[in-house]
Design a protein around this nucleic acid. Sequence first.
DNA 1: GCCCGCTATAAGCTCAGCCTATAGCTCTCC
DNA 2: GGAGAGCTATAGGCTGAGCTTATAGCGGGC
Lengths: 312, 312
Amino acid sequence: MDFRQLRYFAQIVESGSLSKASRTLFVAQPALSQQLAKLEDEVGKPLLQRSTRGVTPTESGLALYHHARFMLRQLEQAMSIARQETGGVRGMVSIGLPATTLSALGLPLVRNIRTKYPGILLNVVEGMSGHLSYMMRLGQLDLAILFTSDVASDLTAKPLLDEELFVLLPASSKLVSRRRTNVTIAEAAALPLILPTGTHGLRRRIAAEFEERNLTARVVAEIDSLSLLMSCVHEGMGATIKPISALQMEGARGRTWRALSVSDARLRRRNYIYSISSDRLSPAASVVAAELRDTAEQLVTSGEWKGVWLVG
Amino acid sequence: MDFRQLRYFAQIVESGSLSKASRTLFVAQPALSQQLAKLEDEVGKPLLQRSTRGVTPTESGLALYHHARFMLRQLEQAMSIARQETGGVRGMVSIGLPATTLSALGLPLVRNIRTKYPGILLNVVEGMSGHLSYMMRLGQLDLAILFTSDVASDLTAKPLLDEELFVLLPASSKLVSRRRTNVTIAEAAALPLILPTGTHGLRRRIAAEFEERNLTARVVAEIDSLSLLMSCVHEGMGATIKPISALQMEGARGRTWRALSVSDARLRRRNYIYSISSDRLSPAASVVAAELRDTAEQLVTSGEWKGVWLVG
DNA sequence: GCCCGCTATAAGCTCAGCCTATAGCTCTCC
DNA sequence: GGAGAGCTATAGGCTGAGCTTATAGCGGGC
């Protein structure tokens, strides 16, 4: 098994045909056939169902496809990881991030801070936004990303970005036609959904939108762990409804996903950078706040953090 | 960049010498030299510091090495993912798992339940053990894995396994000599540590052991997110102290880690499967309890879940 | 029945990746 | 100081993997 084979295989699955994939990859179709046969021989099971109208992945093929996508993404990242960069502010800074936001920028942020400002001791707290807000008010956090601008007088909330909620499912999922880039909320309700339990704000928001239309979510699993939830969705167990940043957690990254907007119920939320008043921020916390904004802007501008728009 | 190159590169880094690596890999040393040169040409930076006494990785090389290890691990998993298996009980079952336990068996468990019993709606809740215990007592969970056998009369706690706490760091970390398989607690205290904040039971346990010996943890980051914490440790930002299952979360899996036992302060904890009394368990919950035990046993027996022993 | 588009196989060509041989370096030991 | 050992890098040659073109065979649409 090799990257070339995985790359060919992934393109074949996405194209639905060796011939089409060969045109996309600029490789002769028999070459794909041979590499595919080699891969199947190695796996010991058919990965594709062949017909004179093209191919569809078997269950094993779909499973491998998702994993192949993940590995190819890791390969892409290997280059930038190999090219590494490496600066002198000191102090302890604590920052609270909700799970999906943490997925999008947690590791890039910590990486940037650790390499640029090794003297900063960064304390990252992952939590639900209600709890982070509470910690912020108690002064337990220097910074946080939260979703309301309703702040106490000694805190400031600066808009960072808006993010839209999407129906998320794996790229080759047959639950929704490949042509579709959006769904109605009724269609969303008909999907097998993997969602957090009812105590989550996101779940409540979704449930409220459904109830407003006499719909109920068709939930096949309730998972209060973003990493596990996304792993499950990625494995084709169902779809979910979240901001696209949920796709950016480790193991979910890459173009194996589809994010379908909900056309008749525009679900979105605004992210704010919370901090104590800037005149009372330590130099270290100021640096981290700036780095947080920079990291977010880079991720948004580069398109790595999708389904969001910078504001402020 | 290819798996062969990554495999050669990883072995070279671990061997500290192309010649040694060539003997391990049964490949002529000039072949390694060529492939390495090709890789470095592709990356555009030196990955190894050469000398007539062998090689050491540069900072970029070390970063790539960790990532290469991860990717090679993913490749190993690709085969088993491609060979998939696939059965009729119905119902909703909720189960609570602490973060590190969820890392070890969360995805395998959900995968097994989804494929074997697609009629079961599984609700997995990730949380701290105190909170899960509370939810269990309220009857909000059917099952949980917890760390004390101190149960209410209508719950049962069956021992599952014991797990030891280790100092965890990346395999090539120079923080501790490669020869070492354990450290004293004083040596652990001298390491740059990435730990959760003080509210975590694990952190309190570590702090207590340190205080008993007039030691303080040298904390370089406090991160209350297992995924982010392990990503940071993986990147070489410091070490941590956790059960080995922390290594099994996505993005941390594979042999890029070292787990050093703390020789003079044997830290361990017992895992119990909590459930409501078995005569009141639904058939679905019984199946999930059995599957939970089976999955854990398989993971432990296969060695995939390390640093633990089955009991009961 | 013909044409199109599909996949699989056959045969041939090219060059990537391996091999052996060897150059050149540093370090250790006598 | 020189010999020997162990290291990495380069040169030249060989082999087979991976590509190509050609084509067989199939099913569906018109």
